[in-house]
Design a protein around this nucleic acid. Structure first.
Lengths: 133, 133
DNA sequence: ACTCTAATGTTATATCATTACGCTTGCTTC
DNA sequence: GAAGCAAGCGTAATGATATAACATTAGAGT
């Protein structure tokens, strides 16, 4: 274990943008917010996102084609993460459940399937929005 | 309960195309295969896919932005379906697990979250490809 | 200094999905 | 049967998401 590598300028800009938002952002949303910082092309954002997601500092929401900052400090440790995405307010809750993970791995083992990346996303209505409705 | 509504021509074409393939197809892949049948625009495919997925005859793989025909006859009955997608050969296995479902619903209940649509996708290497490697 | 790796900047392009609009078809309700 | 309605269809245009290709730069290690 050595020092964690510091983030580069673009990576920091992108992560800060995600952290400041309470909802998922698409790569293009992020780009728009960072034009005044000098970013010009989608690729600059996608590249930063790639690094951030690899390091567990951000997550990609497959069903939204969008990204969020990691909610906990230790996402890189927990193997499988689930997301509950509110379709009304856009809030995203992150969860990690051992039984869930075990169950998926159990199935995979029995099938001889070797999972590399797992996506669990529930879309629906969060508690606050359910009350409001 | 009345007779199940018959599929329209476009819906049938799209479903047949998906069924004939052993891997996920994007909407544009499908369109390409159906040009000689007279389909010309993406929307014709997307509209058919919308109906097919609503009726549980096809599934959308969020992490691939692609579609597959439903593997079982009863997908519309099982609430939550998981997919294991081989990144090497493209094969897709469908599974449905009661404990998994229970676990997700349990979490949702405790949070007051009302799930509407749930996505579970594992990407990795299938048994056959693992052996070959 | 040399080399290796990661990240960068830029342009162009590929891929995925929807909006808008008007027409046709098959009900069903009077 | 005419009026109204909902679902589906056809077409063109556009919007949104993502990557390819290529040249360059910055830093770490030797």
């Amino acid at each position: 274990m050595s020092e964690p590598k510091p983030l580069t300028r673009n990576q920091t800009l992108v992560l800060d943008t995600l952290s400041a938002e309470h909802a998922p952002l698409s790569a293009y949303d992020i780009l728009d917010r960072l034009r005044e910082e000098g970013l010009k092309a989608p690729l600059q954002v996608y590249r930063a996102l790639e690094t951030l997601t690899e390091r567990g500092l951000a997550h990609r929401l497959e069903s939204l084609n969008a990204f969020v900052a990691c909610a906990g400090d230790d996402c890189h440790r927990s193997g499988v993460i689930g997301f509950a995405i509110c379709e009304k307010c856009g809030s995203v809750a992150e969860f990690s459940d051992f039984v869930l993970r075990q169950r998926l791995e159990g199935w995979a083992d029995r099938q001889g399937f070797h999972p590399h990346e797992t996506t669990i996303e529930m879309r629906g209505m969060c508690a606050a929005c359910s009350v409001a409705a």
